[in-house]
């Protein structure tokens, strides 16, 4: 089998996941897109492991580890999303803006804030 079939499929799946992470608004849909990206990496690992006929089968071992870590990640991520939803009443990423810089003022306060932070850090 030609190697570029799995390689191209993995690249396109990764980019689909990338689009989902950037464009989706619901936090759980973003987690789904992250899963797609991880799966693209898994496909690459398996394909290259089969191509190289590695004695240690490092690619397949890493694939199994990635699957386990993805399961752990989805558990923790969903717990965090549920906590945010319980505290704020929403899982929309666009509405979680507590840490943004204040855009209503004309920028001078932001500059002074930054100077104060720099002084505090030094």
């Amino acid at each position: 089998m030609h190697l570029i079939y799995p390689a191209i499929l993995a690249a396109l799946l990764f980019c689909t996941g990338l689009y989902g992470v950037l464009a989706r608004r619901n936090a759980i849909l973003v987690l789904m897109s992250v899963e797609l990206m991880l799966n693209a990496v898994n496909l690459n690992l398996v394909a290259f492991d089969v191509w190289l006929r590695d004695e240690l089968h490092a690619g397949q071992a890493l694939t199994l580890f990635t699957i386990a870590i993805a399961a752990a990640e989805i558990g923790i991520g969903l717990a965090i999303v549920l906590l945010v939803h319980r505290n704020r009443g929403t899982a929309d990423l666009d509405r979680l803006r507590d840490l943004r810089e204040d855009e209503t003022t004309d920028g001078t306060t932001g500059a002074t804030d930054r100077e104060q932070k720099a002084e505090a850090a030094s």
Partner: peptide
């Protein structure tokens, strides 16, 4: 379901797809 930065996301994903 989609946030406001959809065009940027399409651009980034398309560029990444072409490059990869």
């Amino acid at each position: 379901a989609d946030s406001g930065n959809r065009p940027v996301a399409i651009a980034v994903a398309g560029a990444a797809a072409v490059a990869l």
